[in-house]
Amino acid sequence: MSYLCPLCHSPLQAGENRYSCPAGHQFDRAKEGYVNLLPVQHKHSRDPGDSPQMMQARRAFLDAGYYQALRDRVVETLSGALAAHPGDVLDIGCGEGYYTHSFAPVAARHGGECYGLDVSKTAVRYGAKRYRECHFCVASSHRLPFATGAFAAVVRIYAPCKAQELARVLAPGGVVITVTPGPRHLVQFKGLIYPQVKLHDTRPEALEGFSLVAESALSYPMTLPGEQAVSLLQMTPFAWRAKPEVWRQLAEETAFHCEADFVIRTWRKAG
């Protein structure tokens, strides 16, 4: 599969060290193997996405295995979808590739390849350097640099994307697998930060052009040492609201008890 030029939307041809389109736009392939397809005019900040500190915290937490149950469930869901409709897989908002690389062997068993996309150059560099079996790119999830009908499945774990773009890049019969917070996901962190704790709203989003064909919940308790509790907080939107005393309290914990709670949904492209 070839990428599309983010400036003129023509197919990109792969050279030894760069990609180029017929209009003459060129994009270098980094030494780690990824390609940056996020032009400066498509950025909303100088360095969008997660910072190096956030990436390091994320990798430390995920490598410790606390979210492996979620990864296993998504892999199982993806395997079932590809058995019925084989092809390439796209992981939107792939971060440093923790989930992406586990999708690659599933795609390969069904004759496909796995692509990871994130707006964070830092995250993609981390992923591409570690997981050579996947194809990584820096790009906007709202302007996917792929041809119409390119994928059999798209995975979105907390990542935003326009329904029209999802429908465009999916082949007929393709699926989107989404992961969103369950009602009690990390409610104990909320209790440290907010005076009143509200549970997550779990109503399905409206994905125009798709029908919801499956939904499952996954919840389990976690006991985290202080270092991992701090890493997890850094991965969440709660981090922006946490006061210094919250960070200190978590860092001093020897066993912080909290809950992981997820909703996994499968959406099929209409028609």
Rank of each mutant, 00 (worst) to 15 (best):
P204W: 11
S2I: 00
G209Q: 10
M222V: 15
K243P: 00
S79Q: 15
D118W: 09
V154D: 01
G93Y: 10
D118L: 10
F210M: 10
Q56I: 01
D88G: 04
P22K: 08
Y220G: 02
S120H: 08
R143Q: 15
P237K: 09
V263F: 06
A108Q: 12
I264N: 06
C21K: 05
H257W: 00
L78W: 04
F103W: 12
A14Y: 01
P105Q: 02
G112H: 01
P221T: 06
A214K: 13
L224Q: 04
Y131I: 06
H110V: 05
Q26K: 12
A104M: 03
V138N: 05
A128H: 03
C94M: 01
S79C: 04
A147L: 09
P195V: 11
K243E: 14
A139L: 04
H85N: 14
G33C: 12
E253K: 13
L212C: 10
Y99I: 08
L233W: 02
K43S: 00
V74Y: 06
G209Y: 11
I92W: 08
A107D: 01
C161A: 15
N36E: 03
Q56R: 15
L82K: 05
L144T: 01
V124I: 11
A242K: 09
R73S: 11
R132W: 02
V155L: 15
M1I: 05
H85Q: 14
Q53S: 14
V89Y: 07
L186M: 10
H101A: 04
L170I: 05
P145D: 07
A239Q: 03
P221E: 01
V213D: 00
K129Q: 13
K162H: 10
E76K: 07
S45W: 10
V176L: 13
P11N: 00
L186F: 11
Q41P: 00
G80K: 12
C8R: 07
S79L: 09
W267K: 13
A270L: 14
F61L: 13
A107C: 03
C161Y: 02
A108T: 05
H135D: 01
Q249K: 14
A152V: 07
L62M: 13
L7C: 00
G111L: 11
P181K: 10
L37P: 11
Y34P: 04
D63Y: 01
C21L: 09
V138E: 02
H9V: 07
D91M: 00
L170T: 02
H25Y: 08
P105Y: 10
A81N: 04
L207K: 08
S10N: 14
G226E: 02
R46H: 14
Y131E: 03
G112R: 02
K198E: 12
F189N: 00
A123I: 04
A83E: 14
W247T: 05
F262L: 11
Y158Q: 02
L37V: 07
C94S: 13
D88K: 06
L144C: 03
A150C: 05
S216M: 12
L62R: 06
A147S: 11
